[in-house]
């Protein structure tokens, strides 16, 4: 099937393809396929720099990026920090323990204070959905969402897309049509899943979410995906399986009822765990992804996470390149 990487100029108002002109990266939902491809192309170009131990670019030399993490994170913050440094930017870190959020200051006031100190970009992680958009409306520097509650985690979604495209030889066209991405587990609480679904749909992939009704409710179809409760039925059609961690801490409502969304780890693993037996039934060339952190032995067997289908380490390495692209394009 011929793949159109450049849409025909149907109307004069149509945006140019592969062009990024936004100030912020808040989510993948709402972007155009061209914008997602612009980010991925930039990221792909940074892969050699991102994975080298030597060379840096100086594209953002003299600029400063603030990482404003109101919620604990080690890997994402480290990844953004490395990305900024590889671009030659300075990095200041304000994680919640050190910031005045603990003194009652609002998210927005903290962000404005940081901006006033002369930063060019703010990377924000917060437990509240919409936090990044709220901050973006209140500051004039670039804002990159590093995860807002259950909403989105766009750089994670982009690194998933880049990994997926590379695994199936689609890195040039960045077109995923004909591929099926299966996302398994705690989709309802997952900002990673929301970003991955939005991005994969934009690039033409089919997305099927699988889990128990409490974690993969039928309402997820609003995101443009299909929903199933039967992993064994879906697994044979998967070109990539993304396993998600059960986020017990985000099921507040259920916790207060003293009835977790998952009756037991045993039931979850039996129905939805990516065991070695299940991985063996995946079709040739299909890959296994996990955004981390993993619960080995619960949603994924260690043998699968470290096995031949796993592209989990590629995901991590692409993270730095994607974050370089996001910072470079937004800070400009």
């Amino acid at each position: 099937m011929p793949v159109a990487t450049t849409p025909p100029p149907a109307t004069p108002a149509a945006p140019p393809p592969h062009k990024w002109s936004r100030r912020h990266l808040l989510g993948l939902d709402g972007l155009t396929a061209g914008e997602v491809r612009a980010l991925l192309r930039a990221a792909a170009a940074y892969v050699p720099v991102a994975t080298s131990t030597q060379t840096d670019t100086q594209e953002l030399a003299g600029r400063t990026v603030a990482t404003l993490f109101f919620e604990d994170s080690t890997r994402t913050r480290t990844s953004f920090t490395l990305a900024a440094r590889r671009l030659g930017a300075g990095v200041v870190d304000l994680s919640s323990g050190a910031s005045s959020v603990n003194k009652g200051e609002s998210l927005l006031d903290t962000a404005r204070t940081v901006e006033a100190m002369g930063v060019s970009g703010i990377v924000v992680r917060a437990k509240q959905a919409g936090a990044a958009e709220l901050i973006a409306r209140g500051v004039s520097c670039a804002v990159v969402n590093a995860g807002d509650g259950k909403h989105e985690h766009p750089t994670q979604g982009l690194l998933d897309l880049l990994t997926l495209a590379e695994a199936h030889g689609r890195q040039d066209a960045l077109d995923l049509s004909g591929l099926t991405l299966v996302i398994v587990g705690d989709v309802v609480s997952s900002r990673v899943a929301r970003s991955a679904i939005a991005g994969a749909r934009l690039l033409g992939a089919r997305v099927v979410c699988v889990g128990p009704p409490a974690l993969a409710p039928a309402s997820l179809a609003a995101l443009g995906c299909e929903v199933s409760g039967d992993l064994d039925a879906v697994l044979p059609i998967a070109d990539a399986v993304m396993m998600l961690r059960v986020q017990f801490e985000r099921h507040e409502g259920s916790e207060s009822l003293r009835s977790p969304s998952v009756p037991s780890p045993r039931e979850f693993r039996t129905l939805f765990g990516l065991t070695r037996e299940r991985a063996d039934r995946m079709k040739p060339g299909a890959v296994v992804m996990h955004p981390g952190p993993m619960n080995r032995g619960l949603e994924i067997d260690g043998e699968v996470a470290d096995g031949p289908r796993s592209v989990i380490r590629t995901q991590v390495s692409r993270g730095v390149a994607v974050r370089m692209a996001a910072l470079r394009l937004c800070i400009g």
């Binding site: 939902d29 959905a129 919409g130 807002d148 509650g149 909403h151 989105e152 309402s219 609003a222 409502g253």
Partner: peptide, 12 residues
């Protein structure tokens, strides 16, 4: 509890 809640990651 509808499509906007699902998209925005808010509890419905």
């Amino acid at each position: 509890a509808g499509t906007i809640a699902t998209r925005l990651g808010l509890t419905g």
